[in-house]
Design a protein around this nucleic acid. Structure first.
Length: 157
DNA sequence: GCCAACGTTGGC
DNA sequence: GCCAACGTTGGC
């Protein structure tokens, strides 16, 4: 099993939005970066665990845990002219972009903030903390996942 | 809204 | 294949 961190802007699609979807599951469309696409298409497997990260908000950080429940399949938003993710270069015959299904698992008792994570020695190499790292999907080590999960389950900082 | 750090595009 | 221009991301 692998571990991931996936970013969203809560004003667009939040962790709570995911929880409220039927079966607390939704497709993760709109990945339009090749490196993120490769992670998603080639390495994400059903059952992988996800740190769900909120960006572009008052308190950027990890808010809970989700799980990959369907492996990569073509992102059909590419084929919808009205979608902001429309991309005529991705066709049903030769899809360029993919999505996975993600299922809400549990909310943390509090947000594990970016700021806070920077001070944890065990997270020093975590990709999301590295300068210039902007991918919306990044791998996380088992240890990093365990540390962040444990932080999210304790009230105090 | 600013700006650093990318990634992509397209002329040459 | 180079690289300038442009677009995007995301913390602050």
């Amino acid at each position: 099993m692998r571990y991931w961190l996936m970013k969203t802007e809560p004003s667009v699609f939040s962790f709570e939005d995911l929880r409220k979807r039927p079966r607390s599951t939704d497709h993760w469309e709109g990945v339009r970066n090749y490196q993120a696409r490769n992670y998603l298409r080639d390495e994400m497997r059903k059952g992988d665990k996800v740190l769900f990260y909120h960006s572009q908000c008052a308190e950027p950080g990890v808010v809970g845990v989700a799980e990959i429940t369907r492996e990569a399949y073509p992102d059909f938003f590419c084929w919808n002219r009205r979608s902001k993710y429309y991309d005529p270069k991705s066709t049903p015959e030769h899809p360029r972009w993919f999505m996975v299904d993600v299922t809400w698992k549990r909310a943390f008792r509090r947000t594990v903030t970016l700021k806070e994570m920077r001070d944890i020695p065990g997270l020093r190499k975590m990709k999301v903390l590295q300068k210039g790292q902007r991918l919306s999907i990044m791998p996380v080590t088992k240890e990093e996942f365990a540390i962040v999960s444990a932080m999210g389950m304790t009230e105090e900082r």
